[in-house]
């Protein structure tokens, strides 16, 4: 029992520090920028269909609107919309450029 109590205490103590809201928000934005960069890049190579990129962009906009504020989130949302539009127009050159922008922003 003592071992169990010590183990629980250690686990909870280890979990005592968590990311600040700012850190979490930054991470969310960066994570979605990188995800969309991957999807956009794969679409330009013909490896993904339109609906896949549309779904990914919609999910990114939904999650970013819910979990992130500030100009970085707004920029990521704008890039997600631009990517979706480029894909709808079948404009692979534009989608490729947006994917590069997203990848650079995610670094």
């Amino acid at each position: 029992m003592r071992f169990a109590a010590v183990l629980i205490a250690l686990l909870l103590a280890a979990c005592g520090t968590k990311q600040t809201p700012d850190q979490r928000e930054k991470k969310t934005v960066q994570s979605w920028e990188a995800s969309l960069a991957l999807a956009g890049d794969a679409w330009t190579r013909g490896e993904l269909p339109k609906h896949f990129v549309r779904n990914a962009a919609d999910a990114a906009v939904e999650e970013l609107s819910k979990n992130a504020k500030g100009h970085e989130a707004a920029r990521a949302i704008a890039l997600a919309h631009q990517l979706e539009e480029a894909v709808e127009r079948d404009d692979r050159a534009a989608a490729g450029r947006i994917a590069i922008d997203l990848e650079e922003a995610s670094r």
């Binding site: 991470k27 969310t28 994570s31 990188a34 995800s35 991957l38 794969a42 990914a56 990114a60």
Partner: peptide, 17 residues
């Protein structure tokens, strides 16, 4: 390596590409 945290299935769906 890309710093992607999974919060939606739309991200996981890229895994085999």
């Amino acid at each position: 390596p890309r710093g992607i945290d999974i919060s939606r299935y739309e991200q996981i769906a890229l895994i085999l590409t």
